[in-house]
């Protein structure tokens, strides 16, 4: 049997894992004397796949690394994977954003920010495993506390919630984009 190199081991582990593998996780799986070289080996693989310019990349996500197909291949890859894609309504995305940015957060805080009842949407997000119950807040009523899941990070290709761009970076205070249609056309103040 040929001698396995660290690079082979790491690549094989990453390829066969169902979820992103962290460097710490990889360290526990590789031969003891090579532990310290895991991080640089992963980095080497990341740049190798990037420079190879192939169909897959080694991506940093949810605190680990995972092989993913490149997004510009979507026209072909989607043909193979005809799973219903994650389709979130505007309201669901908004609720998810509030929870992602404000976590750990309770329902009334979400509703205060959105100005609208959000119980049903929170339940949907729970069912989709995008958010989870992170405990109860020790205030009267002991409301549930919500936070995002690792599944959320994996789906959105984020390494951690700290990776979420700040709303200022996104231009929160610039002129917001107008809704595609203008539903309020009817009632000008002059009318």
């Amino acid at each position: 049997m040929p001698q396995a190199t660290l690079k082979q081991i790491v690549e094989g582990l990453l390829f066969s894992a169902p979820h992103p593998l962290s460097v710490e996780k990889l360290r526990r799986l590789v031969p003891e004397p090579e532990k310290e070289k895991v991080s640089e080996t992963v980095q080497a693989l990341v740049s190798e796949y990037a420079s190879r310019d192939g169909g897959i990349l080694l991506t940093r996500v949810a605190g680990g690394y995972q092989f993913r197909t490149r997004t510009h291949l979507a026209p072909w890859t989607t043909k193979l994977h005809q799973t219903p894609s994650l389709k979130l309504s505007k309201a669901a995305l908004e609720t998810l954003a509030v929870i992602a940015y404000r976590q750990p957060v309770i329902r009334s805080e979400v509703e205060y920010l959105r100005g609208v009842d959000s119980g049903g949407i929170i339940r949907t997000l729970l069912d989709m495993k995008l958010i989870r119950v992170a405990g109860r807040k020790e205030i009267p009523g002991r409301p549930l506390i919500y936070a995002t899941t690792r599944h959320f990070l994996e789906l959105f290709g984020l390494n951690s919630v700290d990776d979420l761009p700040s709303p200022e970076e996104l231009g929160a205070l610039d002129t917001p984009t107008l809704s595609p249609s203008d539903p309020l056309k009817v009632r000008e103040p002059s009318g």
């Binding site: 979130l88 908004e94 954003a97 509030v98 996104l170 929160a172 917001p176 984009t177």
Partner: peptide, 14 residues
């Protein structure tokens, strides 16, 4: 203002 921030964030997520 806070709502606008979250709206931006949700657009980004989308």
């Amino acid at each position: 203002l806070e709502y606008l921030r979250m709206k931006r964030a949700s657009e980004w997520l989308g």
